[in-house]
């Protein structure tokens, strides 16, 4: 059905079709964990890994569901697989990097309810991507998410030195920053054949 080349998909999901800034997936960690670069980077990598695992398993699960005509179970099965993948990552991080585990706190288990993860699984199914395309889509999505998180964290670290009006402090200024980033990412539109 879908003839997008792998390079197209990869470029599109990283720049003009960025999950966070153009499709609004994964806003919670984008606003929640982007205070410091030191937590934004591992959070981005952890999420990218979960996105990859979720995408691969969703691809095969979907084949299974289509085969048995059980498409209506897709949401339930996808979210269950994602929850398991997140549990895996959580145990791994807790064992290997206990310090990091404390810093990420509640946001690590919350990757389960990160729309970006479920979004990849749903969109790749909706667009009838084949296996290679799905892989490119999830890898691009993960890189794009990490990129957005890092850019945001860098901006917010700078923000601490500037004098923000009282009314705009907190969530509002982060949302405005997000808007500016999104505006600048729109400049990439057209790269990768467009949406």
């Amino acid at each position: 059905m879908n003839n997008d080349t792998i390079a197209n998909i990869l470029l599109t999901t990283i720049l003009p079709g960025n999950f966070v800034l153009a499709m609004f997936l994964g806003m919670c960690p984008f606003l929640g964990v982007s205070q410091k670069l030191s937590t934004a980077v591992p959070m981005g990598i952890a999420t990218a890994f979960v996105i990859l695992v979720a995408s691969v398993s969703a691809y095969f699960l979907n084949m299974l569901l289509v085969h048995f005509h059980l498409e209506f179970l897709s949401v339930i099965t996808f979210i269950t697989v994602i929850a398991c993948a997140v549990q895996l990552v959580e145990m791994f991080v807790k064992k290997t990097f206990p310090e990091l585990f404390r810093q990420l706190g509640i946001y690590l288990p919350l990757i389960t309810t990160n729309c970006a993860v479920l979004g990849v699984a749903l969109f790749q199914t909706a667009r009838n991507y084949n296996f290679a395309q799905s892989l490119a889509y999830s890898i691009g999505g993960g890189i794009g998410f990490t990129l957005a998180l890092i850019l945001m964290a860098g901006l917010r670290e700078r923000m601490q030195l500037s004098n923000v009006p009282t009314l705009v402090q907190g969530a509002a200024i982060s949302v405005i920053l997000g808007g500016l980033l999104s505006l600048s990412f729109m400049g990439f539109s057209g790269i990768g054949g467009g949406e």
């Binding site: 609004f24 705009v168 949302v175 405005i176 808007g179 500016l180 729109m186």
Partner: peptide, 13 residues
């Protein structure tokens, strides 16, 4: 997309 961010920021303010 950017408009969504700006309008939300406006309401938050």
């Amino acid at each position: 997309p950017p408009g969504g961010f700006f309008v939300l920021a406006g309401w938050l303010i």
